[in-house]
Amino acid sequence: MSDELEAHIGPGSLVLADRGLWGLARWHRLRDRGAHLLWRIERRKARRVEDVLPDGSYLARIEANKHSKAAGTIKAPPVRVRVIEYRVDGQADVVRLITSLLDHEQYPAAELAALYARRWEIELVFDEIKTHQRGRPVLRSQTPDGVRQEVYAHLIVHHATRDLLNEAARLHQSVAERTSFTRALNVVRRTMIAPGGFSPLRAQA
């Protein structure tokens, strides 16, 4: 997480982050800005259990690793977090989240776990555009204006394809998220009329 991104986070924000972005100092910085946090973390973290809550989550204490920094470095103070653990259907790995939302009644563990799972939706969108829709390792345009135009074109095509999926799901009373984007994209491509092999300017002459 860059300093530029942190500068846009303020009171009322809920910051979600994957493993690898954890940092005690960063946690304190964002909390000082008034933001709440819901982060995935490695299982070896937050082992000091203080209290087990009725929804299965628990409160724990995290302290700075005394071996992680050079001698003389000021270490971040400890923090009290709430830990939520769950498994995704069909997978053996345990997903472990920590959050600054300590009230289990106002913020049930199941709701926070479902919210965190939705973070992957943006990752799926990136994959749909970059891997399946674009089909090329790089953009073809060689000017800044051309690149912007090409990016906007890809976003418009993705939005239109997703809109088609939503409409199909509505008609068939199914869930659009469980419908193959690749299959829908192939249907769209098959229905497109191939461009003519002549110059419009030449046709007008």
Score class of each variant (00 low, 15 high):
Met1Ser: 13
Asp3Met: 08
Asp3Arg: 13
Ala17Trp: 10
Ala17Pro: 08
Ala17Phe: 11
Arg19Ala: 11
Leu24Tyr: 01
Arg26Val: 02
Arg31Asp: 05
Gly34Tyr: 02
His36Asn: 15
Leu37Trp: 08
Glu42Ala: 15
Arg44Tyr: 06
Glu50Pro: 00
Pro54His: 13
Pro54Val: 10
Ser57His: 11
Ala60Trp: 09
Ala60Lys: 06
Glu63Pro: 01
Ser68Trp: 05
Ser68Lys: 12
Ala70Asp: 07
Ala71Gly: 05
Ile74Leu: 12
Ala76Ser: 14
Ala76Pro: 12
Pro78Cys: 02
Tyr86Leu: 02
Tyr86Asn: 00
Val88Arg: 14
Asp89Gln: 14
Gly90Glu: 08
Ala92Tyr: 01
Thr99Trp: 07
Leu101Arg: 09
Leu102Cys: 04
Asp103Glu: 03
Asp103Asn: 09
Glu105Lys: 14
Tyr107Thr: 00
Tyr107Asp: 00
Ala109Leu: 08
Ala113Glu: 00
Leu115Tyr: 02
Ala117Trp: 00
Arg119Asn: 02
Arg119Ile: 05
Glu123Phe: 10
Val125His: 06
Asp127Ser: 15
Ile129Phe: 06
Arg140Lys: 13
Pro144Ala: 12
Asp145Tyr: 08
Val147Thr: 04
Leu155Val: 01
Ile156Pro: 04
Ile156Ala: 15
Leu164Asp: 10
Leu164Gly: 07
Leu165Arg: 15
Asn166Met: 13
Glu167Pro: 01
Gln173Gly: 05
Ser174Cys: 07
Ala176Gly: 03
Ser180Ile: 08
Phe181Ala: 11
Arg183Phe: 09
Asn186Leu: 13
Val187Glu: 11
Val188Cys: 11
Thr191Asp: 11
Gly197Ala: 12
Ser199Gly: 04
Ser199Leu: 10
Arg202Leu: 06
Gln204Ile: 13
Ala205Tyr: 08
